[in-house]
Measured scan of single mutants.
Amino acid sequence: TTYKLILNGKTLKGETTTEAVDAETAERVFKEYAKKNGVDGEWTYDDATKTFTSTE
């Protein structure tokens, strides 16, 4: 399943996707990605669109 991440950081904005077996796995991948890029925001998830959003 393809999951999408929308980053709305103070210094980094953008989108990326990952293939994962479930939302929990995708969330771990995306949170590590955000951390590596210095984004520490509030997380939301929309199951209908398989989209995570992190907003600082």
Rank of each mutant, 00 (worst) to 15 (best):
E56G: 05
Y45K: 01
K35R: 12
K36D: 10
S54Q: 07
V29M: 10
E32H: 06
A48H: 10
D22L: 04
Y3K: 03
A48E: 12
Y45P: 00
K13N: 09
Y45C: 00
G9T: 09
E56S: 06
E24W: 09
D47F: 08
E56T: 07
F30Q: 00
V21N: 12
E27V: 05
A48M: 11
F52G: 00
I6L: 07
K50I: 01
K10H: 13
T18E: 04
K4V: 09
T44P: 00
V39E: 04
S54D: 04
D22P: 00
G14E: 13
K50G: 04
K31L: 07
T55A: 06
Y33E: 03
A48Y: 10
A26L: 01
L12P: 04
Y3F: 11
V29T: 09
T16C: 15
G9R: 03
D46I: 04
A23F: 15
A23T: 09
N37P: 01
D47W: 08
G9H: 14
E56K: 05
T11M: 12
G38S: 05
T16H: 14
Y45N: 00
V29I: 14
I6W: 04
K10L: 14
T53Q: 07
T16S: 09
A26N: 00
K36C: 12
A23I: 11
A23Y: 15
E56V: 08
E15H: 10
Y3L: 02
A34L: 10
L12C: 15
V29H: 11
E56Y: 08
T55S: 09
G9N: 05
F52P: 00
T16A: 12
N8E: 09
N37I: 14
A34G: 02
L5R: 00
E32N: 07
Y45T: 00
Y33M: 04
Y33K: 01
K36F: 10
G9S: 09
G41K: 02
F30T: 00
E19K: 12
V29S: 05
W43S: 00
T55N: 09
A34S: 06
G41L: 08
D22A: 03
E19D: 10
K10S: 10
W43F: 10
G38K: 06
D46R: 02
E32M: 07
T25S: 13
S54L: 15
E15M: 14
R28W: 07
S54E: 04
Y33T: 02
G9M: 07
L12V: 14
A48T: 12
T44I: 08
T1S: 10
V21Y: 12
T17M: 09
D46T: 04
I6P: 00
Y45V: 00
N8M: 12
L5H: 02
K4C: 08
F52R: 00
V29L: 11
Y45S: 00
D47L: 07
N8T: 08
K36R: 12
K31F: 06
N37V: 15
K13E: 05
F30E: 00
T18I: 15
F30K: 01
T2I: 14
T1E: 12
E27N: 05
T25A: 13
A23E: 07
K31T: 05
S54R: 03
F30H: 00
T1K: 10
E19I: 15
T17D: 04
T53G: 02
A26I: 01
T49H: 05
G38V: 03
K36N: 12
K35E: 10
K35C: 10
L12F: 15
Y3N: 03
D22W: 02
T44S: 13
D22K: 03
D46K: 02
G38P: 01
T53M: 09
K4T: 14
G41N: 03
A26F: 01
Y45F: 06
A20Q: 07
T51L: 03
Y3Q: 03
G38R: 06
Y3R: 03
L12T: 12
T18M: 13
E56A: 06
F30P: 00
R28Y: 07
F52K: 00
E19G: 04
T16N: 05
A23G: 04
E15P: 03
